[in-house]
Each structure stands twice: as structure tokens, then as C-alpha cells.
């Protein structure tokens, strides 16, 4: 009579299915026993949580100095934004995040969603920039930290999307010239690193403009991000368009729809729906890529961290803790987006 032993079966199946698997399990467990205590020690047990530089120095890196976050979190999160006005970027960020999450989870009907965006974006700018409703003006050169990261990522994605659709459609045009143009744009942008596009936006755009006209560096950099993201996004959308079965085109034609009508009402909606997960990947990339604007001197999250720590000899040696802190912020953002895309994939199947 065989006994039913769920635990043993589970262990055998998952950890000891064959000799190699068993060896792996043993090796991993031994490694964990060696390393985990030290790691927990550093992360928690010996860590200093108070904003106390002396205690941190005394811990001498045997434990993490989370006090650096307690001491500097306002500069890390809001950069150079005037201290007593920081409720404004906080409120603006929360508002924008709420709208993003609500849109992502489909909590609002389409019209309400569009309305929410149409209201939130101007409110975001008014809150950040001020100079209206009695708010003290704060120039965009003082914007920084997480609000700037969020703004660049959100606007980058929102503005790149329509451009990407146009370019993707252009690649299916009956005009060879238009096809070639769209293709060249995509290949050109995808062939160069983002940093060179940002240099272009930062150093070169001003020279293209007629004298006396200048565009804020934040807008120029945003323009660079949009140009860059649109090329990648359009490839994704093109993939979706290619995947639509020919039968759909035929059916649309049979219904008497013209080529562009069919595109607009039949093909494009299906294609876009099919590529939502890959578009979320693009969104994740844009979110991560905003960290590069620190190289052209905009103090978004990564830049404001070095603003907060590098100039302060008392705290400078605890950079690693600072990096881990903002890495966590980025990680949560990216993870949430990929979770959403996986959820969407499941729902679609």
C-alpha cells in the first residue's frame, strides 16, 4: 500500500528530481546559509536608521546607513525645488500617479479617463511652475527628483504614441517614398544611443532656432525622448499590424470600407490591443531611460541623488544606500508596469 506523502512528492519533484538538481539544491542552500546572515546583518540588524552621521560613521559599513535617506530624502525626491514649496510637487506627483494607475487598471470609462488626463496635466504644470493662483513661481530649472522623472516618462510616452502610430502606418503606405522615409527615421534613431539624441537636443537644437527664440531645456530634452521613444514604439506597433490576419483586411474590404477606413476601425484597434504588453515594455524602457537626462544636467531622481550626497562630505561615503533607495523606486515603477502587462496578457487569452 503506497502512502500519499504530499510534502515528499513535492520535494522530490521540485528540488531533488535528479542528481544534478539535488546537487544544485544543496549548493544553493549552503550558499544561502553562508551569505544570508551577513546580508541581513548589513541590511537590518546592524543598520543605522537615524539621520545621524556620527552613528553611521561608527557603524563603519558593517551595517547599512539608512539614515542617509532619512536625512536627505527631500533633496533626493524633489531635487532643488524650494523647500517650503515642496508640497506642490508632492501633490502634483500623487495626482498624476492616481490618474496613471486609474487609467492602467481601467477604473474609469474612456471619456472620464480622457477628461481626467486633460485636467491633470495642466494642473501638474500649474502646481510645479506656479506663477498663478497666488503660487510662487518656480522655474523649470529648479524642478527635480521624482516628479521630473515621472513627468518625462509620462509625457514621453504620451507624445511618442501618436507619432509612433503615424510612422507605423506610414510604413504600410502605398507610396514608396513615404515608406522609405518612415523606415529611415526608425532605423536612424534605433541605430544611435539615446545619449547622443539628448546631446543633440541639449546642445544643437538651440543652434537650429533663429536667434532670439529659445526653448526651455526641459522641453528640448523631452522632445529628444519623444523622438527616440517613437521609433521603438512604432516598431512594436508595426509588428502588431503585421500580425493581423489577411482575412481581416478582406472582410473590411468586403464591407465596403476603404483602405484607411479599414485601418482606422478594424486593423489598428486590434493591432494596438495585441501589442499592449510590448508597449508596456517600451514604457518601462522610457521610465528607466529618463535617468540619462542627468548627463545633460537635469536633476531627475538619479541626478538629485548625487546633488544630495556628492557635495556633502559627511554623507558622501553612504552613496550605496542612496543608490539602493532610488533603485527601489525605479524597481517598483517598472515592476508595476510589467505586472500590468502580464495581467493584460492573461485577460486577453
Amino acid at each position: 500500500m503506497t502512502q500519499h506523502r504530499p510534502l515528499r512528492d513535492w520535494l522530490r519533484r521540485n528540488l531533488f528530481s535528479d542528481a544534478f538538481s539535488a546537487a544544485t539544491t544543496v549548493a544553493l542552500v549552503v550558499a544561502a546559509l553562508c551569505w544570508l546572515p551577513d546580508l541581513i546583518d548589513w541590511l537590518l540588524l546592524q543598520a543605522v536608521f537615524r539621520a545621524d552621521a556620527v552613528a553611521c560613521q561608527a557603524a563603519n559599513h558593517a551595517g547599512a546607513c539608512w539614515g542617509v535617506v532619512a536625512e536627505k530624502y527631500r533633496i533626493i525626491l524633489f531635487g532643488r525645488y524650494p523647500h517650503q514649496e515642496q508640497w506642490r510637487p508632492l501633490l502634483a506627483t500623487v495626482l498624476l500617479l492616481v490618474v496613471i494607475v486609474a487609467s492602467g487598471r481601467g477604473l474609469l470609462p474612456l471619456r472620464a479617463m480622457l477628461l481626467a488626463w486633460a485636467v491633470t496635466l495642466p494642473v501638474f504644470f500649474i502646481l510645479m511652475g506656479g506663477d498663478r493662483f497666488g503660487l510662487q513661481p518656480v522655474g523649470s530649472d529648479q524642478w527635480g527628483g521624482f516628479p521630473l522623472t515621472l513627468l518625462l516618462a509620462t509625457l514621453g510616452m504620451l507624445l511618442a504614441f501618436p507619432l509612433a502610430i503615424l510612422v507605423a502606418l506610414g510604413r504600410f503606405s502605398s507610396l514608396p517614398l513615404l515608406r522609405g522615409l518612415c523606415r529611415s527615421y526608425v532605423e536612424l534613431v534605433r541605430g544611435v544611443p539615446l545619449i547622443s539624441v539628448l546631446f543633440l537636443a541639449s546642445f544643437l537644437f538651440p543652434l537650429l532656432l533663429p536667434p532670439g527664440i529659445s526653448i526651455d531645456v526641459l522641453l528640448r530634452v523631452l522632445f529628444g525622448i519623444v523622438l527616440f521613444a517613437a521609433a521603438y514604439l512604432s516598431e512594436t506597433i508595426r509588428g502588431g499590424l503585421l500580425a493581423i490576419p489577411a482575412g481581416q483586411h478582406d472582410a473590411a474590404a468586403a464591407l465596403g470600407l476603404g483602405r484607411w477606413q479599414a485601418m482606422r476601425w478594424i486593423i489598428l484597434p486590434q493591432a494596438l490591443r495585441a501589442v499592449v504588453p510590448s508597449m508596456m515594455n517600451s514604457a518601462v524602457s522610457i521610465f528607466k531611460d529618463t535617468s540619462l537626462v542627468t548627463i545633460v544636467s537635469l536633476y531627475e531622481l538619479t541626478g538629485s541623488l548625487s546633488l544630495a550626497l556628492a557635495g556633502d562630505p559627511e554623507w558622501r561615503s553612504f552613496h550605496l544606500e542612496g543608490y539602493l533607495f532610488i533603485a527601489l523606486i525605479y524597481w517598483i515603477g517598472c515592476h508595476a508596469m510589467s505586472r500590468f502587462s502580464r495581467g493584460f496578457e492573461h485577460a486577453a487569452h
Binding site: D141, S202, F203, P206, L207, L209, I213, S214, V217, V296
Partner: peptide
């Protein structure tokens, strides 16, 4: 006065372009 913080690379183009 409006102060425009510029890094070493940006400074000359910012002036040349009239920013």
C-alpha cells in the same frame, strides 16, 4: 535675473543661440 544653470558643454551653445 533669470539664472540658467549650464554645464561646461552647454554654456557656449546656450549663449550662441540666444538662450
Amino acid at each position: 535675473v533669470k539664472y540658467v544653470p549650464l554645464n561646461a558643454q552647454q554654456r557656449f551653445t546656450a549663449l550662441q543661440s540666444g538662450e
